[in-house]
Amino acid sequence: MAWLDTIVQGILLGGLYALFATGLSLIFGVMRLVNLAHGDFSILAAFIAVVAVQVLDLNPLLALILVVPVMAVLGYGLQRLVLNRLLGRGILPAVLVTFGLSIVIQNGLLETFSADSRRLNPGGIETASLPLGGGLAVGWFPLLTFGVAVLLLVGLQLLIGRTALGRAFRAASDDGGTAALMGIDNGRLYGLAMALSLAIVAVAGIFLGIRTTFTFSSGPDRLLFAFEAVIIGGLGSLWGTLVGGVILGVAQTTGARLSPGWGVLAGHLVFLAVLLLRPAGLFSKPRRLDS
């Protein structure tokens, strides 16, 4: 029974990982950009929420209303002013600039907020649990997180599949040059993609901050987990990303059950195993693993 509990925890954790992963794979799909500061942006969002909670006395879940638009605008600006200039110059500039951003954000957070760990407190919901029968109980908050993740994925799926903007994303992802010939303003489109990516990762960051403590240096691990979830699930598939997140989550909770220090490592090993055995991921559409 305790094992079932571990697996359920892992599945719900996977929802959170899927959120992190989705932002990353969206911008990679549209513009072949890997944002090494992806995780750091989620932690930045969590710290902005900390400030909002302190200054405005808001519940962290309500702080989402403030933080998400702020991060979206930040993403749009970052893309249009900085990152758009690097596209078409090979991967080196983009990797190095986002890496530099990661260093700057982490150290900026360290200077501003010190090295203390923080946690966002939504007033009790995070500890409440829902009994499922048979002695199994599931936390309300992990359930909520998973639900929000699924909801966002559905929303994103609808956006990409049914709207003109979504068609533009897919067209640009297929062939940026021809997309421009259709009248698509790639510069603006990439800005919107990054805005969307950071908005999603802001939600992920706040939910993370409620679930667990975080510090200025928590960002890079989020990037790694996002990356692993994307690779396990397979590039080019939104629902694959959810499955990838779930597999990673279950691997981590199972590993942690065996020995506390082994959680994250177990996730890494599963990731490496998938990489060895099915490099294209479990649900990928036929597309290569490269930029």
Partner: peptide, 30 residues
């Protein structure tokens, strides 16, 4: 290029360049 489409200059490109991720109708809509 996108500004020229606004003016009404439209190219049917060599090699067709159909978008593989889009359906026939979606290609037209784009």
């Amino acid at each position: 290029a996108h500004a020229l489409v606004d003016l009404g200059i439209v190219l049917v490109p060599e090699g067709r360049k159909i978008f593989p991720s889009l359906s026939v109708e979606e290609n037209l809509l784009v």
